[in-house]
Computed example of a mutant assay.
Amino acid sequence: MRFSHSPEVWRGFPALVSGVLATDGITPDTAVADRLAPFHDMARARLAESAEGEFPETQAWRRAFSAMGLKPTQYRCASESLLRRFRKEGALPSIHPLIDLCNAVSLAYAVPIAVFDVAHVADFLEVRPATGTETYTTFAGAEEHPEPGEIVFADASGTAHARRWTNRQAATSAIRDTTSSALIVAEALHDSARGDIESVITALADELAAIWSTGAKSAILSADQRAFEY
C-alpha cells in the first residue's frame, strides 16, 4: 500500500505537513475513556480561551478551503467541526475505540485526522484533484460523484474515500467492528504544522501501543518527502 499527495496538491499548498501512521491488531472491545480524558482536557483549555474559529490551525484550513472555491463556514475541516460540537455539547459520542482516540487527539491539537480501514482501499490512497468520475458513498448509502478539481482521497479503483479534502469521509473505508488494520492521516497547514504533526503522530503511536499493544509504522510527509509505503 502507498499513501501520497499529488503534485497538484503540493504545488497549491506547499506549507502542507502530513503525518501518516499504519497499524494493525485493532479490536472493537477495548475501553479507552480514561486514555482520552487528557486530550479532551487539552481541548477544553484551549476553547476556554478562544473559539475554534480563531485557532491558527483552523484559520489555515479556512484559507485553504477558500482557495479551493469553497465557503469555509459551510464546508468545515473535520477538526473544526469536531471542536465546534465539543464546545457546544461538552463531549463527543463514542463510535469505535480507534475513532474515539483519533477524534480526541484531533480535538487536542486542532488538526483533522482521517482513519481508514485499509481492507477496503484498493492498492493505494492518493490525495488529488478529482476527475469527476470517482464514486463516493455516503453513510446513508447514497452514491455521489465529486466535482472535477475537488480534492479527494482516491484509490486505484476510482473510489473517493473522502470529499473536499478534510471535510467529509466516505462510508466505504469507515472503521467498523471488523477492522483490524488501519491507516491514520493527520494534516496541517499552519505555521507550526511540522512540530504539531510530529506531536500528533507521537501521541497516536503511544496510545496505540498502550491500548492495543500494537506497533505502528509512521512518517511525516512534506514537500521533501511525499509518499509513505506501508
Rank of each mutant, 00 (worst) to 15 (best):
E144G: 00
R168M: 13
G69P: 03
R35N: 03
F228Q: 01
E49C: 00
S213L: 08
D206P: 00
T179M: 07
D100G: 02
S18T: 15
S50K: 14
D155P: 09
A203F: 06
R85L: 09
E187P: 00
E147Q: 14
D196N: 07
E126A: 06
R11H: 10
I99R: 12
S180F: 03
S6N: 02
E144K: 15
S173Y: 04
A209E: 14
L70W: 11
F13R: 06
E198R: 12
R62K: 14
R176V: 02
T138M: 03
I211S: 02
P7T: 08
H96G: 01
S199K: 08
H5K: 00
L125E: 04
T58I: 09
N167K: 00
A223I: 14
E52M: 02
T178F: 04
T166E: 13
H145Y: 09
A205S: 15
S6W: 03
M42T: 04
A193R: 12
T27R: 15
V185I: 15
T27G: 05
P146N: 09
E207M: 14
Y230Q: 00
S106M: 09
G25E: 07
P38V: 09
R46D: 04
R168I: 10
G53H: 10
A104C: 12
W212I: 10
G19A: 01
A140R: 11
A37D: 11
E198T: 13
V17N: 02
N167F: 14
A37Q: 14
D191N: 08
A210V: 00
S50V: 10
A188V: 08
G25M: 10
G53W: 06
A174M: 11
A33H: 13
D177L: 05
R163M: 15
R46F: 01
S180C: 08
T178N: 08
A170M: 05
S222H: 08
L183I: 13
A160L: 05
H120C: 03
S213P: 00
R63M: 09
Y230M: 10
A104G: 07
A174H: 14
S79Y: 05
S106V: 08
E126H: 04
A140M: 06
V200S: 03
D196L: 13
R176L: 00
V121I: 15
R2I: 13
S106H: 03
P148Y: 12
R87N: 00
R128S: 11
G69W: 11
T30I: 15
A51M: 01
A108Y: 03
E150S: 14
A91E: 12
A33W: 07
E147R: 15
H5P: 00
Q59F: 01
A45R: 12
Y109W: 13
H161L: 10
T133V: 07
S199A: 11
Y109M: 09
G132W: 04
A209T: 14
E49T: 04
A162M: 06
R87P: 00
A37Y: 01
L82P: 01
D191P: 01
T138W: 06
V32M: 09
A160N: 05
Q74E: 14
S213W: 05
T179V: 10
M68Y: 04
A188I: 10
E143C: 11
T159V: 14
H190K: 02
H96N: 13
V127A: 07
G158V: 08
